[in-house]
């Protein structure tokens, strides 16, 4: 079981690099913001897998805090984007 968990953990970390590709290559600012938002949700998955793998209970608390902070960051950036223009 530990081997399978390790494989899934590395797969999840690989998916984070997909998001980073979108953050680096995205043509406009909203593209990059979508990448960062999805990155935040994937980190919660990593926290959950690490909780099973190491058996330390506090890691899921980090996941819950990460959900709320990522949500606030996304809302702030969306509010900022709706007041700006692409060509200025």
């Amino acid at each position: 079981m530990t081997t399978v968990l390790h494989i899934l953990l590395y797969a999840q970390i690989l998916l984070c690099f997909f998001c980073l590709y979108r953050v680096v290559m995205g043509p406009t600012i909203p593209d990059r913001m979508v990448g960062i938002d999805i990155f935040g949700v994937l980190v919660v998955g990593i926290c959950a897998i690490l909780t099973i793998l190491t058996g330390r209970m506090f890691i899921i608390d980090i996941g819950i805090a990460w959900i709320i902070l990522s949500f606030i960051g996304t809302l702030t950036m969306a509010k900022y984007l709706s007041k700006k223009k692409l060509n200025e």
Partner: peptide
């Protein structure tokens, strides 16, 4: 918590991107 955060975030990003141009 994750469900509401994700859906509301997606709605806000779509609206912000449209107003951004």
């Amino acid at each position: 918590l994750l469900f509401f955060a994700s859906t509301v975030g997606a709605h806000a990003l779509a609206r912000g991107a449209y107003y951004f141009g």
